[in-house]
Amino acid sequence: MKVKKTAMITRRPIDPSKVLAAAADDAAGGAVLFVGTIRKKSDGKRVRGLSYEVYREMAERKMGDIEAEARRRWPVIGIAMSHRYGELEVGEVSVAVAVSCEHRADAFEACRYSIDAIKGTLPMWKKERFADGTETWVKGAPIEG
C-alpha cells in the first residue's frame, strides 16, 4: 500500500482540490475533505479580513505529529493538510485537511481529529480586521500539549 503525505504552512492561496488529490489513493474507498473559510461576521460585527500569524517551525513539526497520531489511531492511507497565514479576505480558504481510508467511517473520524488538532495544537494566531476599521486578536484557547 502506497503511503502519501503532505503538510504545508503557506502564504499562498490554498486549492482544496490539490489537498484532496494529495490524500487520494486507489487503495482508498473514500476521502473526507474539510475546508475552513473566513466568515463574514464575528460576534455580530462585519469582518473585512483576517491576519494569521504562525510560529512556522513549530507548526510544521506539529503537523507532522498530527499526521503520525492520525495514522496511529486510524488505518489512514493518505493524509494531507495545508494552513495559510498572512492576510486573508472573507470567503478565502484558511485551512484544508483531507484523509483517505479504505472505509468512510475511519476517514471521517481521522479528518475530524486532524482539524481539531490543527486548531488545538498549532501555534497560530489570528487578528480580525473589522469593516469599521478596528482590529483585535481572536480570543483563542491555551495551546494543547
Binding site: G36, Y52, V54, Y55, M58, A59, H83, S94, V95, I115, I118, K119, G120, T121, L122, P123, M124, W125, K126, W137, V138, K139, G140, A141, P142, I143
Partner: peptide, 10 residues
C-alpha cells in the same frame, strides 16, 4: 523558547 498566547488557528 516561544511565548505563546492562546492559539486560534483553523
Amino acid at each position: 523558547v516561544g511565548v505563546l498566547p492562546p492559539v486560534a488557528g483553523g
